[in-house]
Design a protein around this nucleic acid. Sequence first.
RNA 1: GGCCCGUUCGUCUAGGGGUUAGGACGUUAGAUUUUCAUUCUAGAAACAGGGGUUCGAUUCCCCUACGGGCUACCA
Length: 505
Amino acid sequence: MSDKKVRVRFAPSPTGGLHLGGVRTALFNYLFAKKNKGDFILRIEDTDQNRYVEGAEAYIIDCLNWCGIIPDESPVTPGQYAPYRQSERKSIYREYAERLVMQGHAYYAFDTAEELDKNRKEIPNFQYGQVYRDGLRNSLSLPQHEVDQLLAEHTPHVIRIKIPADQTVSFTDMIRGRVSFETNQVDDKVLLKADGMPTYHLAVVVDDYLMKISHAFRGEEWLPSAPVHLLLWDYLGWKADMPQWAHLPLILKPDGHGKLSKRDGARLGFPVYAMNWFDAKTGELTPGFRELGFLPEAFVNLLATLGWNDGSEREIFNIDELADKFSIDRISKAGAKFDFEKAKWFNAEWIKKVKGERLKVEVKKVLEDKDVIINDDDYLLTVIELIKDRCTLLPDFYQQSAYFFQTPAEYDLNAVKPKWTEEKTDFFNAIIELLKPTEVLVAADLESSFKALAEEKGLKTGDVMLPFRIMLVGGKFGPHVFDIAALLGKDETINRIEKALVAFK
RNA sequence: GGCCCGUUCGUCUAGGGGUUAGGACGUUAGAUUUUCAUUCUAGAAACAGGGGUUCGAUUCCCCUACGGGCUACCA
């Protein structure tokens, strides 16, 4: 590893929402940068004008913000290597492509899409490369005057790299070790498209060079095109500055096989995107972890431990701890099937771990979205502390806490009615009388007098505890019933008993 | 089809020439909680197969199988 400043980039295409794998790539870049006191750069790879989606870039930035993966340089916070959108760097790339043509490492190709499609269909294993390029329409096969004329007439054309014959291209991947490719198997990839935009292959090399990227993390799906990039770094004369590569294992479908995709989310009932993504064209909403009720702390944590561990048995880390412990040689090589159950466990752990104060904004939103009115933040905080250990996702706070703010609208009558007796009605009327003179309702006091009264009336405590809970909560859940009563206060407790007594009749 | 990458409980993983192959999620059983959840305890559960190398391989090498990725003027 060289001693040059660590600079890494996350380079997504703005084609839609950000998928788990994308966020993890961003996260690993970020963790590596922080660990090595380097810079983390966000570069938008919008070279495909057909796939460009309005709003996708803003979404990506929001998403990184939500996760706390903040770029040091980005399109909206540019550094000295601006611009950070490849579409705005269009003019830069042609020069390098032309230079390669001049040097004989690339050539102009005039074939139409139809011609190429035909070849692919008719010739088994067709690839635009050393075997077939002489029979195709390009500056290697055509006479010079014809090429000149085609260019002069502005005939649509691309620039392709000329992959050399009979060479072995190899490099050391930081995750996989030595990886080799035979150039005879590599095709002449397009570098510059007919519209003047570079393809990924050219753009990634040129920009990584110009932006002084030291380490390049990307998904394993890029491994097969690595030889093209290696060759380009060499031909452009930048070999000494080439970043170290790290091809990350893929995140796979939990069932069946293959790379996790957007469709799997809908099919298997869990999100694949970090945040909700609304596609204006199709009107389709793809759900996200954030809106489902994940905490960013949990989301980042679960992503980091998907294919990485710190060598100990610890699993819960915040982002700073992750950055501190991060190391590439602890990244696993094999793809990981995504397990939503474990993802939920991480969230539950984080809800338990953080202070109630941290949850206030999120919980308030959950409740207010359900029309629960909150006018006392301290009361809300007390409620959160009392119930957060029983919540897995943020929306669980509604079911677990709504009754602290509003009288139950419905009761689980099956739990009380079958065993309901006149004696119990008497008992609760007596409880009301007992509560009336109370100044402040203290949980422990109520509990002892409640039990004493039950005994006095010849009832088993257990026979009246559940009805009491149903009266206050509406259902068979929640914290200790006397704590609930104490929080509700004397008046509201009496009110709920009276109301429920009518319903239980 | 071709090329590349990979393979430890159902899942995420630790480990590594001699281990009772460890942890976590999930699951099962029990305890606590006169509700539910939390918590705690215990249990079931894995080195893909075949050849080498070696005194000894789950660990190193090779082959096979299986899985994944790529094979666009998409990234």
